[in-house]
Nucleic acid binder design. Sequence first.
DNA 1: ACGGTAAACTAAAACGATTTAAAATTTTAT
DNA 2: ATAAAATTTTAAATCGTTTTAGTTTACCGT
Lengths: 350, 350
Amino acid sequence: MTKRVSLADVANSLGLSKTVVSLVVNDKADAHGISKKTQKRVMEKIKELNYQPNVLARGFRTGKTQTIGLIVSDISNRFYSRIARHIEDLAWQHGYGVVICSTDEKTEKERKQIRLLLDRRVDGLIISSSQDEAAFFNELKESGIPHVLIDRVFDQMQSSSVSVDNYGGARMATRHLLAQGVRDIALMVISPTHISTIRQRINGFLSAMQDAGNAVPEERILSVPFDTMEAAVKEYLQYFFQSGTMPQAIFTLNNNLTSLCIKYLRKLSISIPHEVMLIGFDDTEYFEYTQPTISVIEQPLEKISGEAFRVLLNQISLKQKASAENILLPVDIIIRESSVSGNSSFTPIH
Amino acid sequence: MTKRVSLADVANSLGLSKTVVSLVVNDKADAHGISKKTQKRVMEKIKELNYQPNVLARGFRTGKTQTIGLIVSDISNRFYSRIARHIEDLAWQHGYGVVICSTDEKTEKERKQIRLLLDRRVDGLIISSSQDEAAFFNELKESGIPHVLIDRVFDQMQSSSVSVDNYGGARMATRHLLAQGVRDIALMVISPTHISTIRQRINGFLSAMQDAGNAVPEERILSVPFDTMEAAVKEYLQYFFQSGTMPQAIFTLNNNLTSLCIKYLRKLSISIPHEVMLIGFDDTEYFEYTQPTISVIEQPLEKISGEAFRVLLNQISLKQKASAENILLPVDIIIRESSVSGNSSFTPIH
DNA sequence: ACGGTAAACTAAAACGATTTAAAATTTTAT
DNA sequence: ATAAAATTTTAAATCGTTTTAGTTTACCGT
């Protein structure tokens, strides 16, 4: 490996000072009154010698790394991997790399990872947080570290955020089910339930039910722990099946729960939507392929990613502390077969 | 933001030299004969002042960044996002961060990203490459840059790799279909077909067919361009349907193709496995949920990730140029409903 | 010819660690 | 007691950039 060309090499071979070369490289030549002629000479020499700035040295000097951190609960969850992809694209377009961390919904793990990323001097963070209070992020905000919360937000929060209308989405889904004539709807919730998206969706569900004059017995709110998700879903459904207390519809609050419901309803030979209707939060292309196809509330992933990155970049480029931007995006309902009574999963498909 | 504690601060507050503190921090104190007593004093002071080394300064000095790059065709593809998750876990366990890049199967984009990552002085690379020849990686190997190719490999290659028995897997799938009594099998292939996994799978398929004395007409090898995947799959299936030339079975060479076949066969009201059997390369939990459930060749993702990281770490820690390790892992066949004749997708599910 | 000003460029410090070569101190051997 | 050897510690260079605070040169008006 031949040694790389350094700034000093360029400067020396031109008989100029490092300052000039540095200024040219950083587009500050005009501002510092370096003559056009010299600028051209420098640029040509840079090309000739194939000089590439040492990113590490620059990062060391400036404290900037041209890297952002992305923190999600699990990058292998399709919801997050798609967001990751969009953010990755935007980031590289703007010269940033993305370091990814999965927290498994563990508050402590998340904090540790954020600390590690800050140790590495990432220029900013995009976070889908599992924290149970805003305090941690308010500290971050105090310290002036650029960051944007996505998906999940907090009440007393000073940070910027990009989130969706979870309340409205849940209301929409619930009202759709009610319009199908069902009354006994179970809500399947992922715990820990302190997460804002979950709370908002629960509230949206309850308000729609209340509007329709439907009571929601406590046992129709099904709490499923993140760590034992599959077992818990299985148990709930088996219990309903055996005790003959199957609800008329299930509204699942994320794509994993939706998938698991499909899986175990099938195992129990319970037909969707005949015996139980199903609608879920978060779409997946697979929900178009299943039999029946699954109705969902769809989030605008590309928009979320785009806004989050825009807000973050804005914070990074601003010298002084930026004021918070809190962006709320609408969601869509996609009605497929699983929540429509007219449609039968038994109809021969030809 | 209060200024951070530096190595010099620790040294000064103890009346010691920076050297001592540095050696202690880097576990080289014993090797350089720093007394145990001093080591303890230093460690206590470090705790007291909450000193944390400046990663950038260290990286600048040592040329190491404690970061690895992961290059795949698309991080939002479940196959890769799961690998990414495993690698992420292992990496952080060993103090490494992971920067992710998606290439969209573009050879030039991939090269550019690798160059960018090397500019950033990542310590190593794990790559699922879209290159069409080994030359690029042989150069990398020459330069002594630690890297491991996963999933896809090359013939004349000096790099380390972790891949699976694609040939055997394709043979297994094909023989399974043959055992079901089908003879007219179409192979759905993603192009560009120079990718080793695809080539090996094609060969496995062809060899199994030949062994059984079955000719494979050219029109039964369905080539689907990566960029227009959905449209191409749709077109193939529609054509078969309209012309009455539907094969008895389709063997899809990746999870996206499998999904698209499910989608469009359903749209055409063609029943699986009755009218067409289906088996795919790569599993997804959704293939357990679909109706019918889908048979697949499953790759050992965790093993692939684990071996890749192990080999890479080995290369990184070795001072001299490491010899190549080429690891081949076996695959499994998971037989579900989509490829079994006894099972009907029309059977009422209760 | 001289002070003043603008234009073009430079020297040197700084960032915070690692590492080389050497110095200071202590121990051991005679 | 002293030289030699072993142990422990240090000073200073170094990595490659950015940036502060000048310096030099040329030109102007009077």
